[in-house]
Each structure stands twice: as structure tokens, then as C-alpha cells.
């Protein structure tokens, strides 16, 4: 049998020898941009998905503002102002769940195999996915600000703190995108990913200060609700956009975000290698 010496390439018009190039940082950035662009296109071309995923948070606003809101005693008296920071964070976290579904879909569809057989930066598939979902989340959060303004919510901070509050919401959503990336890679099936992604969200969002003051909860639950990431982030956002002392909540929130990012980034990358 004929066996080529190593590296001997056929002379051919269609196959000029590709020269392997190391994956440098700038190449990795281009790969991430390419994958992000691909995912954003998918989002734009399935507007119905975007529409329905926006309907849910709007329903939550209406439900809490007009149905439960009258019975909830907000500390500063205005429930719309109390509610909306909670809604922002909730929306950003639910938005992050699309990361798990999207990744599981890609795995099932075999396109991840194609990506992995290409000389691209491996990290780009996960980074491009989470960044696209971050952009999507930005759109949804802006929408929720508009809805909030319509139901009586007002910003009371400075321009810097108001914007800082919304950035904190997005940072929290981005950190959770990595949690969902790990979930999607672990379960590998879009339907399961959808359900599995929401499960941990429920206790975090509802046993928190997002919709009701923590002080109304039984002591054992309060201990959890006081320190968990959603509560401290919602409280930090509230302090940023409504005024008030910020530091106590903000640093706790940032520590949580950084911790979640690091842990789930490592976990997701590891799962991706094995997937």
C-alpha cells in the first residue's frame, strides 16, 4: 500500500496545502465574534421566540403590580419602584436559560462536531453563545424598563448609578448564562435543558427579596433569602436605581457574580471538552 511521508501534501488546484496556524488571542476574538454573529442571527430570525419569552416577564409585572402588589407592603411605600429591580433580575436570569437550550440544540444537531473539527479556538463556541445571549438580554431588559415606566416605576438615582444598576443586572444574567451553559452541556437535550435550567431558578427567585420584603418570611427561610445571590443583587440594583446606601449589597453581589462565573466557566469548559 502507498503511504505518504508525513506532511507530504498532494499538489492540487482545489487543495493548496493549508498551513496550520496557532490559535492566537486575536484569532480567538475573531472566532468568538463569528460564533456570536451566528447566534444573534438565529435570535433575530426566530422573532416568535423572542416575543414569547418577553410576554412572560410582562405578565409577571402585571401580576405582581396589580394582583399581589396591593397586599404587599413595600418598605418605601411605592411597590412599582420596589418590584421592578426584582423583575429586571428575574428577566435576566430567565433569559440566561436560553443558553442551555441553545447549546443542547447545537449538540444534538451535530453542528458542535463541525465546529470542533475546525481549526478554531475551542472556547469560542461557549463564549459566542453566552455573549449572544447577553446581547439578547440587553434587549429584554430595555423592554422591561419601558414596561416598568408604564406601570409607575421611576429611576431615582443619578445617571451613573441608574446605568450601573442595569449593568449589574446584565452581569448577573451573564454569570447565570454559564450556569445554564453547564446545564445544557450536561443534559444534552433541549427539552430537558429547558426544565432543568428553570428548576434551580425558582427557589433563588421566589425565596428572595425580588418580589416581597424578606422580613415577612419565616426565620429559616430568611437566613437563606438574606444571603443568596438573587437577593443581594436585587437589593444592590434597588439601592443603585432608587438611591440609598449601596456598598453593603454591591460588593456581596459582585462576589457572587465573580464566584458563579469562575466556577461555572470552568465546569462548562470541562463539560464541553468531554461532550
Amino acid at each position: 500500500m502507498t503511504t505518504a511521508g508525513t506532511g507530504a501534501l498532494p499538489a492540487s488546484s482545489l487543495a493548496p496545502a493549508a498551513t496550520p496556524r496557532p490559535v492566537t488571542f486575536s484569532v480567538a476574538v475573531r472566532d468568538v465574534a463569528g460564533i456570536t454573529g451566528r447566534n444573534l442571527r438565529r435570535i433575530v430570525r426566530t422573532p416568535q421566540l423572542m416575543l414569547f419569552s418577553s410576554v412572560q416577564p410582562v405578565m409577571f409585572v402585571l401580576l405582581f403590580r396589580y394582583v399581589f402588589g396591593g397586599a404587599i407592603h413595600a418598605p418605601n411605600g411605592n411597590y412599582a419602584d420596589y418590584l421592578m429591580p426584582g423583575i429586571f433580575v428575574q428577566t435576566a436570569l430567565f433569559g440566561g436559560a436560553s443558553t442551555s437550550v441553545g447549546l443542547a440544540q447545537d449538540l444534538g444537531g451535530g453542528i458542535i462536531d463541525r465546529f470542533r473539527s475546525l481549526p478554531m479556538a475551542r472556547s469560542a463556541v461557549l463564549a459566542g453563545r453566552t455573549i449572544a445571549d447577553l446581547v439578547r438580554n440587553l434587549g429584554v431588559v430595555v423592554l422591561m424598563v419601558v414596561v416598568g415606566l408604564l406601570v409607575g416605576f421611576r429611576f431615582h438615582g443619578s445617571v451613573v448609578t441608574d446605568i450601573g444598576g442595569l449593568l449589574l443586572v446584565l452581569a448577573m444574567g451573564y454569570a447565570f448564562s454559564w450556569v445554564f451553559a453547564a446545564v445544557g452541556l450536561a443534559v444534552k437535550d433541549p427539552e430537558t435543558a429547558q426544565v432543568a435550567g428553570f428548576l434551580p431558578l425558582f427557589p433563588l427567585i421566589f425565596a428572595s427579596s425580588a418580589f416581597v420584603p424578606v422580613s415577612t418570611m419565616p426565620a429559616w427561610l430568611r437566613d437563606f433569602a438574606d444571603v443568596q445571590p438573587v437577593s443581594v443583587t436585587v437589593d444592590a440594583v434597588r439601592a443603585l436605581v432608587e438611591g440609598g446606601p449601596v456598598e453593603h449589597w454591591l460588593w456581596q453581589s459582585l462576589v457572587w457574580i465573580a464566584g458563579i462565573l469562575v466556577v461555572f466557566f470552568v465546569l462548562a469548559v470541562r463539560l464541553y471538552r468531554k461532550a
Partner: peptide, 25 residues
């Protein structure tokens, strides 16, 4: 080219090919 077509359903054929080209740098 794997056993099951690994292309993006939502993108056009051309976009799929250009994406692969981009990832070949």
C-alpha cells in the same frame, strides 16, 4: 462531513459556508 448533516438550519446555505470559512480564518 459527519454522518448527520451538521449545518445551521436558521442560517442560509451561504451563511453556513461563510461561517465555516471564517472559522478556517
Amino acid at each position: 462531513a459527519g454522518q448527520f448533516a451538521a449545518v445551521d438550519e436558521i442560517l442560509t446555505g451561504r451563511e453556513n459556508l461563510e461561517l465555516v470559512g471564517l472559522l478556517y480564518h
